[in-house]
């Protein structure tokens, strides 16, 4: 079965306070950068065995919703690898 690379990007919902982002914001401002807001997310890279690119994306989406992100406080996005995007397959599915 072929392997596919998928990236799951997880972010805190906008309504949630992000103490880590606040700390980083403070430092960046201290350094003089004109930054207004910082939100910290997480990128999780998966290598998935699947029949095809669509199946790989579907599996990645299922794993993201069930384990990798907590739907109570986070949102997620599944991205395909750049190679597949060039081939017209994969790409951002959510």
């Amino acid at each position: 079965m072929p392997h596919f690379k998928r990236v799951v990007a997880v972010d805190l919902k906008p309504a949630l306070l992000d103490p880590e982002g606040e700390a980083i914001l403070g430092v960046l401002k201290h350094l003089g950068y004109p930054v207004q807001d910082v939100r910290v997310g997480r990128r999780i890279q998966l290598t998935v065995s699947a029949d095809g690119p669509d199946d790989a994306s579907a599996l990645a989406t299922e794993m993201a919703g069930r384990v990798l992100a907590n739907p109570v406080m986070e949102t997620f996005r599944v991205e395909g690898s750049p190679d597949e995007r060039r081939d017209g397959a994969g790409g951002s599915v959510r």
């Binding site: 949630l16 306070l17 103490p19 880590e20 606040e22 700390a23 907590n70 109570v72 406080m73």
Partner: peptide
């Protein structure tokens, strides 16, 4: 219900 996340104070 809900979730537990990083303290306000960090």
């Amino acid at each position: 219900p809900g979730a537990l996340t990083v303290n306000r104070s960090r």
